[in-house]
Design a protein around this nucleic acid. Structure first.
Lengths: 197, 197, 197, 197
DNA sequence: AGATAAGCGAGACGGTACGTCACGTCTTCAC
DNA sequence: GTGAAGACGTGACGTACCGTCTCGCTTATCT
């Protein structure tokens, strides 16, 4: 930080000031972490970041946009496990996702993004695009299982991931992220072998 | 309606006036249906119901409480299919749920409840209790399949339902309720037979 | 004051709270007195009066309306002198007006009202109506002079007052209110006798 | 205009660019004419003149300074009538002034200057200096009347002009510039002969 | 039967946040 | 160093809701 404490942040000419951008994202993240979505307002972010509201609105057209940007700036979890076996891949996938959401702020932030998407159409669209992209990435480990002959040809890798992700969303959105290893094992077994066993 | 148009609603003494209660719930539902969660405010409900704000606050302590009450007053879909076969039961379950959410207002209202639950802890608790109850009810058709020998003994009916419900939630929350029958069939097959086929 | 310091001002039901009204007018007056028109904002008045902005906007549709109201709540100067002689009446009229504007806040407030009237059409209309009314009231002493035979029949009392008032406005608006008794005497003489002497 | 439309205005080295200066003054005048003082902002002038804000602030330290400059660049009316008679000189003086203010933009601009002078002390000083200078110039026709023996020796030409100007200001500031010839005649008669006739 | 108590619509209250506008300052880059 | 350009922090704008309060009323229930 070049400006550490001594002087205020200023314009650096007719171009975006990355210090302001960082300060705003950090403030937004901190507020979400501390007070949740309820305390998250443009005004509060501006106050905490020592930024002007117009500066925020200049670069993020809405609360939802800022929220999504905060989420995207989170460190990402590896979502394509590769343990060599479908069943353990499933367990690894869910364990990593639950841990990611549980340990840092990512869970609280993602809950906020989902909530926002129920109000703001742009947020809905952005969230849909995001999850579809994620699903197709994560589906890779199922595709690998198919290549290994471990999964049937007729299964849809995306649909399989959607099933796992839907399960995880439900747990997240109802505050039930405490992962039970046996439960996950059972789930992985159910999914890989099917209800019919 | 006893008071049809001619006179205003009044107190009926030191007791809750059911007409007011009904008017408020109807107004709340109409607003959610027409404008979604974004337009849903106590102020707007009071305006539309020709009710005083204190009347609303007297009986519903928060926005979330009113929202949940609206949802509970919706007609419920039958969630325990019984077609005689596990695979068609799964299809029937999801088809009914998607249709229920898509056709009436129930989808918009449930999305609102979920969103509210991300902000309001009481709403989270209420939602969690609600879904756990629902899951255990719906799990009945999986239990029946087990009884028929159509599903393995070691599978958890609740977990199975949670998988289906999670899938449905994800579709609802990202506005992807347009149900594709083939997709549902494939999903049902995946779940019943497992990825390994 | 019934609420002296101990408790906050509250709603007294579905009716205007006169305490709030008074607090707002006093705050507005104090701000004008201390900081002039430059510091006069609805926000500042609300802050000082411990009132909500919507409360101000509820009762005064604009800055101009509040400004005029503040001016109208000033103590009024007697503008119809009656010394028995036209010339001394003129001197008394101007002396009183200058003194009124100079001594209290009235001058600063009236300057603000005039300035506002150059921006806001409603304020222009209100100011015009106000001055025309004032002129016709003040014209009384000229009418009395006519009745006494001290002024010619063909003179217009209103026009005469407008001449005096215009002179006073000019002095007020250019910060030249320091009254010079000899100058006023000369002016009174000029007006009563005419330039031709 | 040398640069008509084809290219942007640029620096012409370490000296003031008169094209920019002209463009800014023209833009300021046009805005005052079209939207009045309410629409007059440095931002709006910069936008309309395709000028940078710092360019404006470099040469005019405040809104008031720009306003006064715009006023000074107006074509001036001849304010020293010479009809040979005091009474018709008075009528000519007022008719010319009213016409000047009414016909072009000058009235709107001068109103703005006066309003600004109620907020900005520098503008007050500049306005006072300006009007005192004007008064002494215009007083010339009264002095001539004195030289002709048409006005008494003891009258103050400046005071007489101040009376006329004050009358005119009042009309300008309350949007009553519609000149009534008979009224002006009566006024001229009152002033020249005096109220006592 | 009269008093009491609570519910009702209404709407004002002090607040907070909204999204926009203009302020005056600052920096960049072309000339 | 001047020019256009435009980002910056600041703060006011006028509006929407928040949750609380009091009003004036209506009516069932309890003396």
């Amino acid at each position: 930080m070049t400006n550490a404490g001594t002087s205020r942040r200023r314009s650096i000419g007719a171009q975006r000031n990355p210090e302001s951008q960082q300060a705003i994202l950090k403030a937004a993240e901190a507020i979400l972490m501390e007070d949740g979505l309820a305390g998250f307002s443009i005004e509060a972010v501006a106050r905490r970041a020592h930024a002007g509201k117009p500066t925020i609105y200049r670069w993020w057209p809405s609360r939802a946009a800022l929220l999504l940007d905060v989420y995207h700036h989170q460190k990402h979890v590896e979502r394509v496990p590769d343990t060599g076996s479908l069943e353990t891949d499933i367990i690894a996938f869910l364990t990593a996702l639950f841990g990611y959401w549980r340990d840092g702020n990512a869970g609280a932030i993602f809950r906020s993004v989902i909530a926002e998407a129920q109000t703001d159409v742009k947020a809905t669209d952005a969230l849909r695009a995001y999850v579809l992209d994620r699903f197709s990435q994560s589906a890779e480990f199922v595709r690998r299982a198919q290549a290994r002959g471990e999964a049937a040809d007729w299964v849809s890798p995306e649909l399989a991931i959607e099933l796992l992700a839907g399960f995880a969303w439900n747990r997240l959105l109802t505050s039930r992220l405490d992962d039970n290893p046996e439960e996950l094992q059972r789930l992985a077994r159910q999914i890989s072998l099917g209800l019919k066993g």
